[in-house]
Structure formats: C-alpha cells, structure tokens
Design a protein around this nucleic acid. Structure first.
Length: 238
DNA sequence: GCGACAG
DNA sequence: ATCTTGTCGC
C-alpha cells in the first residue's frame, strides 16, 4: 500500500476543517466569562506538545491545570507520544489534536472534578487561513472553551507583518493593550496583545471555541506573569 | 529565484 | 517545535 499523496491529504483535511468550522461557537457561553473579575472561574488549563532535537516524530504531550486567579498547579500530565501526521502550516491540528484530546480524556477519567473551565492552546484559533486553527479544532472536539495564543504572527487573510503592523506594536504601551487583526473581509480574526508591561513583543490571541474575542484577550492578560500565559508557558519535564 | 511557513 | 552563550539593561 502506498501512502496517500500530500495533495490528496490536504484536500481531505480542508474539507474536514470546513465541516467542523460550522460548530465553532464564537461567543461567551459560560457565566464566569460575563463577569468583570471572572468570578466562578477556578481552573484554567494549557496544552502543548514539545519535541527534542531533530526528532519530529516523538513528542511529549502535556496538560496542566492551574488554579485561578492564583495560577498554582493543580494537575499535570505528560505522555510520550508518536506522531503520525506531518506538520503543514494551516493543518497543525491534524498533527497535534489527537494527543491533546487524549490528555484531556485521561483527566476526565481520573479526576473529572479537575477538568479546566477553559484551555489555552499554543497556536491560533480563528486567526487562520480558513478560520479554523488548532484552538478551534481542539475546542470543537473537546467541547471545552479554548483560547488560541500564538507567539508568532501568521500572515493570513490580508494581515501582514508590514510597517503599519510594526507601528501598531510600537503603540502598545502597557500590559493589556491590544489592537485588532482584521481580515481583508473586514472581520476581526484576533488581537495582538501586549501581555505584560515588560514584553514589547505581543502575543496573538484568537477565539478557539465558546468564548468571545474580548473575553479571550482579557483572560489571556489575566493569566500572564510573563509574555506567554502561565498555562502554556513552561511545562514539567518529560 | 524569493519569500512565507501557528507548532 | 528545537539547536545554543553570552550579553546588555533594568
């Protein structure tokens, strides 16, 4: 048997994204999201896959749950996994989601009361070529509210890393300041957020699932001690 | 040929 | 993603 050509795979993945895209909920669905201080929010999660050296097949899938607002570790899980799908920009979810979901399912089985009320994901949500990045994918498949936080700008739908963008970054004065990432269509796909007073390089926040963009940005800022939100900043060692 | 390319 | 040391500044 021969492996399916990459082109065929990509077509298949595109249609899968289009199908799941319809299930994304782009607004606040939880009570805690609607309060100024997120009252009722007690657990925030983060997921990530980390690699070693030049090995792009074996990775460590990690899930951490922190208390809110103290951001103390309540739960952590690390599992070595073997990846099957290649990394193709725009299709990160097909490579990582299965293992992130497994981690959430292990938690649900062992300590369901520790399930996070929102999950931070390394990568984009709606800020994506087809408005369905990793954070949306994981959100829809898990049913949990998810927030996408990317450390680098994906140049997509007319959003460019040009001089205008650079000057908007320069105008972010303090932690919490942000500016919208607007697609050619006019839709705001995400926001560039200065996540702390000390970091001049912003993070790129977008809706994953079951949360509004403004709430996602506000929550991200509330979870940042440094540039990257605590739940996805640094994970325990493998 | 050159630039872009979440993780 | 990951490889890597020092260095400059507060």
């Amino acid at each position: 048997m021969s492996a399916p050509p990459a082109e065929e795979l990509v077509k298949q993945w595109e249609s899968e994204q289009a199908r799941l895209r319809q299930q994304v909920v782009e607004k606040d669905t939880e009570d805690w999201q609607k309060t100024p201080g997120f009252s009722g929010l007690e657990r925030v999660g983060g997921v990530d896959l980390s690699f070693i050296k030049g090995d792009d097949v074996n990775a460590c899938a990690q899930l951490v749950v922190l208390s809110y607002p103290d951001l103390e570790v309540l739960y952590e899980d690390s599992q070595m996994v073997t990846l099957t799908a290649p990394y193709i920009a725009g299709f990160l979810a097909f490579r990582e989601t299965p293992f992130l979901l497994e981690a959430l399912q292990r938690l649900q089985r062992k300590q369901p009361t520790l399930l996070p009320q929102v999950v931070f994901v390394d990568g984009n949500g709606l800020f994506h070529y087809r408005e369905f990045g990793l954070a949306c994918h994981l959100g829809v498949l898990s049913g949990l509210p998810c927030v996408g936080v990317a450390k680098n700008l994906l140049q997509v739908q007319g959003v460019n890393k040009d001089e205008e963008h650079q000057s908007q970054i320069a105008a972010l004065q303090k932690g919490g300041d942000s500016f919208p990432l607007t697609a050619a269509s006019g839709k705001v796909l995400g926001k560039a957020l200065r996540s702390s007073d000390k970091s001049s390089k912003p993070v790129y926040v977008s809706v994953g699932h079951k949360i509004s963009l403004d709430t996602a940005v506000r929550l991200t800022h509330a979870c940042c001690r440094y540039r990257v939100p605590e739940p996805i900043r640094q994970f325990p060692e493998a």
